[in-house]
């Protein structure tokens, strides 16, 4: 694998995760528990889709095959998407949605903190811009995990259930392969291994305040979305919804 190929894959992984999480959050639009929460969630979705555009636009440039950000978003199939399994999980209730974002935000924040040092200027610039946004996402979602975890008995149960159910998708965030190895050597990508203990610490801190139990650290973890493009059954539905217009009218521009 060449550096260019690795960089293309790497950029897709980031772009796809942002896009699919943005997609899931958009599904809440108009249906949130309070108008203020609708606004906050749309805001986060906007940031994520914006980040995805930056990554995919860059991926298309790296690939250099005359594709655009939209070609990458709208004309790839399930197996070509490299997002984390975590972010494609259905919204469930509001607590599930918050927990899914929280797990990812903690990682995303720590990851971007490293990625800003990337020797690839474009990647570093995207990371810099995203870091500001994700600092807010993390704050927002941590606050909600605490509020709902330590709210009523009902909300506590909902949050603990969400924490337990989504736990098996958190390990994948730290998975690495040849793509990471090649780019780490070039100083483009950070090593994800050291982030794991920091991630766990932050989750523990927030959960302690939220009176939630951290699921077992040695639990079995799912993987395969980010590295291999093997997704859950959800993925096809997301893509059929997201991609249907450009697929139905291949000659049209919008």
């Amino acid at each position: 694998m060449t550096i260019k190929e690795a960089l293309f894959q790497y950029t897709l992984r980031q772009g796809d995760t942002s896009l699919i999480l943005g997609h899931r959050l958009s599904e809440w639009c108009g249906h949130g528990p309070k108008l203020e929460q609708d606004i906050a969630l749309i805001n986060i979705a906007l940031d994520l889709v914006g980040q995805s555009r930056s990554y995919l636009e860059y991926a298309a440039r790296i690939e250099d095959k005359n594709r655009t950000e939209d070609d990458l978003a709208y004309h790839r199939a399930e197996r070509e998407f490299k997002n984390l399994l975590l972010v494609e999980q259905p919204n469930g209730n509001w607590g599930n949605t918050i927990m899914r974002s929280f797990y990812y935000d903690v990682f995303h924040y720590l990851f971007l903190h490293e990625l800003v040092k990337s020797k690839d200027e474009q990647i570093a610039a995207i990371a810099q811009k995203s870091l500001k946004e994700v600092t807010y996402h993390l704050k927002h979602n941590s606050d909600w995990v605490i509020r709902l975890g330590d709210g009523t008995e009902e909300s506590h149960v909902i949050m603990q259930t969400a924490a337990d159910e989504l736990w098996m998708f958190t390990g994948e965030m730290f998975d690495m392969d040849e793509v990471d190895d090649i780019l780490m050597k070039e100083g483009i990508a950070p090593d994800l291994k050291p982030l794991h203990s920091k991630w766990l610490q932050k989750v523990k801190d927030v959960f302690t305040e939220a009176t939630l139990k951290v699921p077992p650290e040695d639990a079995w973890m799912q993987s395969g979305g980010k590295l291999k493009g093997i997704h859950s059954e959800q993925m096809g539905f997301i893509l059929s919804e997201m991609q249907y217009l450009p697929r139905a009218y291949p000659d049209a521009t919008w």
Binding site: H31, P33, K34, Q37, N93, W94, L148, E154, S155
Partner: peptide, 8 residues
């Protein structure tokens, strides 16, 4: 659906 969130 959001009642539990607001109560919490």
């Amino acid at each position: 659906n959001g009642a539990w969130v607001r109560e919490a």
